[in-house]
Design a binder for these strands. Structure first.
Lengths: 246, 246
DNA sequence: TATGGTTGTCTATATTAATAGACATTTGAG
DNA sequence: CTCAAATGTCTATTAATATAGACAACCATA
């Protein structure tokens, strides 16, 4: 096997151990170590990355902290978890259905809620008057007990007055809409960007600092094309991918 | 104006100055400093982030290196560049058209090319036999002389034998397809993930280490639904966003 | 032209990241 | 049992990161 030197950048604000941890995490997600179910030995990784073994150990310790690997003295470092949830994005995008059977247990938790006047940009998206009341729900979604996204959702307050209670009862936006008389809705548009995790991401999504967040800004409309929800959702980038099928 | 403390993480593999540089870059892209066209004074930023002024200076120096800001002694730090290109993703996704008038000058450069046998996963996507010959083009796309994506493109070698020359001549996949007799094609599917920039990203896209990359894996098909191109494109996350309109 | 606000530069110190080497401990296989 | 291979732990040193303080240089403007 040819073992080319793998490129890492020095002296540039991102510690070597973190760069290496990110690479190994990606390799695990890509199935590169599926043959053995283990990460290569520390000395091998150190040679591949051209760093000291202790630096590799720092990277592996971070991955162990995330629950991705588990080091076993005398044996090697086992891969514990290897997951990347796929979220299809289409006209009928729904979180719970989208996960499908990729996870057994799906949860939606309400972190907080408020009623507030819509700022200009939001009002424009929802096609309501600036300052008109909107209901804001901060939610956390989990799959198999692991947090996979945190979202801020806005709804026109006039039309969906009981949104908070309906979501709390069901843990699902789709179910809440149905409880409030909206049986169907469509995804009108989705914007996707990426950024570094902020403090709230780290806490709510149980990430380690330096993690990457995929941000999806979505507008949902009813069958008549009237906006019913604007949502900003943040996903850990190493756990999910989006698929757009045309 | 209330100036809440902005959260930065210590001792976690990403240097404070880099975290702060990333935040300021994002704030610039979000238009938060449009009123003045300048970044707040170093002392103000230091207070906001809860760090020493020298740490903020390191962050600003990095942004100046990227050409995003320019410090002027006695006056302040001017915002030089503020861009986030929007890429619509749809059935008719095309790079050049997608940018539209967001940039004046659009270029497509061929970095390298090769003909090689298709590995299993690629062959499956392109619906050809494993090991069948494919043409691989490594390309770099620029808008207004700034690199905005680097892509690896695969085409079935039998059908698109002159792809390399056609692309070199036009700098456009769409034009190359037309030159080879394919007048129209559709985007069949797109997968989007995010990761840290690797060494090649840093070099080709002129990024600073720690930058985030949006990765799009796309399959294009001809009007009969036959796959004609599989592409993996990498975009600097702080320069672009994807929009999916349904 | 005097002043306040801003960036530029310098010195010094403490903490963190990375390297280097040595040796202990555990496991699996011969 | 013995040995090779792998992870665990320890000490020491160097380089990078971050803080602290002082003052110079420059700019706009009152």
């Amino acid at each position: 096997m040819d073992v080319g030197q793998i490129n890492v950048q020095r002296q540039n604000g991102v510690a070597l151990w973190r760069q290496i941890a990110d690479r190994i995490r990606a390799s695990i997600a890509n199935g590169e170590y599926d043959a053995t179910g283990m990460v290569p030995p520390e000395m091998v990784l150190a040679a591949q990355f051209g760093v000291n073994r202790h630096t590799v150990r720092s990277a592996l310790a971070a991955l162990a902290q995330e629950g991705i690997v588990r080091a076993m003295q005398g044996r090697g470092t086992l891969i514990e978890r290897k997951e990347r949830l796929n979220f299809p994005i289409s006209q009928r995008t729904r979180f719970t259905e989208g996960i499908g059977d990729q996870a057994r247990k799906k949860e939606g938790l309400l972190l907080s809620s408020a009623e507030e006047p819509a700022p200009a940009a939001l009002a424009s998206s929802l096609r309501i008057a600036e300052g008109a009341p909107v209901i804001r729900l901060e939610t956390l979604r989990k799959a198999d007990r692991r947090p996979v996204s945190r979202s801020t959702n806005w709804f026109p307050a006039g039309r969906f007055a009981g949104m908070k209670e309906a979501y709390e009862a069901s843990g699902s936006i789709t179910a809440a809409f149905q409880a409030l008389g909206l049986s169907d809705y469509w995804r009108f548009s989705t914007e996707i960007t990426a950024t570094h995790a902020d403090g709230a991401d780290l806490a709510d999504l149980q990430l380690s600092p330096g993690a990457i967040i995929l941000v999806a800004r979505a507008l949902n409309v009813d069958p008549d094309g009237v906006p019913v929800q604007y949502a900003v959702s943040r996903f850990p980038a190493d756990m999910v991918q989006f698929t757009i099928a045309n």
